[in-house]
């Protein structure tokens, strides 16, 4: 939520004639933010108010933190949070490291078949996880890491690496060739060029790729659901769904509290890097 607040604040300084912009923007905002609002009020409503047929469903009369208390102390929610964080951070960094090397090699080393390789990497991203999870489950089982966090840490890169590679290839392409040639003449090796020239210039691209990768692994559901069964190894999206829905009983308050807290780290991350993120998606390297 804070991401949207920060990002939109620049509108306040715009001249009045632009006020016409606010109407469509407001519609947009309502559509985007309503789920958040719904999560917030649902998580604060006591059960009686939640299930009442009368009264205003868009407001909360007697807010309570009972659902949060239940979530934090009666379930393994903190543990799920920690798992999700670990899995997301590690798989993001693994994927970034691999993608930087792959993207640089495909884009700049002019090897035979690098274009084909680039397209193959993209095609790999298009294979739906709902097909891939079956062979991946078999592999993780044989590796003996089924039902551990490692199962997720090694499988998430299968969709993160193609994605990040593709994104970084585009970014590397925008860095002028001459810089590398100049560095080559200046006496730098390929590795030094990558570390001292390309990576510092690609920071916005790395940040966007990193944020995307982190978000994708944070929200990942299918692999987490199929590869993990022990409660203490679950991630937030899976844990909330599997442990807070008992048969046909939905613990709506706790569910929404879990979803709300689960979406906060990503929101904070976006807010923190929003400028780099935009630059990474739109900008080339300016000399």
């Amino acid at each position: 939520m804070s991401a949207t607040d920060d990002g939109m604040s620049y509108l306040q300084s715009l001249p009045r004639r632009v006020v016409t912009l606010y109407v469509p923007l407001a519609v947009f905002l309502i559509v985007l933010l309503f789920p958040f609002y719904w999560m917030v009020i649902t998580s604060l409503k006591p059960d009686a108010e939640l299930l009442a047929a009368d009264g205003n469903p868009f407001w909360v009369v007697a807010p309570t933190l009972a659902h949060f208390r239940k979530l934090l102390f009666d379930t393994a929610y903190p543990r799920w949070m920690w798992n999700t964080l670990q899995v997301s951070v590690i798989s993001t960094f693994l994927s970034l490291a691999a993608s930087v090397l792959a993207a640089y090699a495909i884009e700049r080393l002019r090897m035979r078949g690098s274009r084909t390789l680039g397209i193959c990497v993209f095609l790999a991203y298009l294979v739906p996880p709902s097909i891939l999870f079956i062979p991946l489950a078999a592999i993780t089982f044989q590796l003996g890491i089924f039902d551990t966090r490692f199962a997720l840490i090694v499988t998430y890169p299968t969709f993160l690496i193609p994605f990040c590679t593709w994104l970084l290839m585009g970014y590397f392409r925008s860095i002028p060739f001459e810089l590398e040639e100049c560095a080559l003449i200046d006496g730098a090796s390929r590795w030094q060029i990558l570390v001292k020239i390309i990576l510092p210039l690609a920071v916005p691209g790395l940040i966007s790729a990193g944020i995307f990768a982190f978000t994708l692994s944070w929200n990942e559901f299918l692999y987490a659901l199929t590869f993990i069964s022990a409660s203490e190894n679950k991630t937030v999206p899976v844990g909330v769904i599997t442990e807070l829905v008992e048969g046909d009983v939905y613990h709506w308050g706790a569910l929404m509290a879990g979803a709300l807290m689960g979406s906060l780290p990503v929101a904070v991350l976006y807010a923190f890097f929003v400028e780099h993120y935009v630059a990474g998606m739109t900008g080339a390297v300016k000399e």
Partner: peptide, 27 residues
Amino acid sequence: PKDRDIAMVFQNYALYPHMSVFDNMAF
């Protein structure tokens, strides 16, 4: 190239944008 003991000036200068003038020259 690095062992040819040459220096090259490029058309678009190819200055490293993330380095100061000093660092560019010292690279």
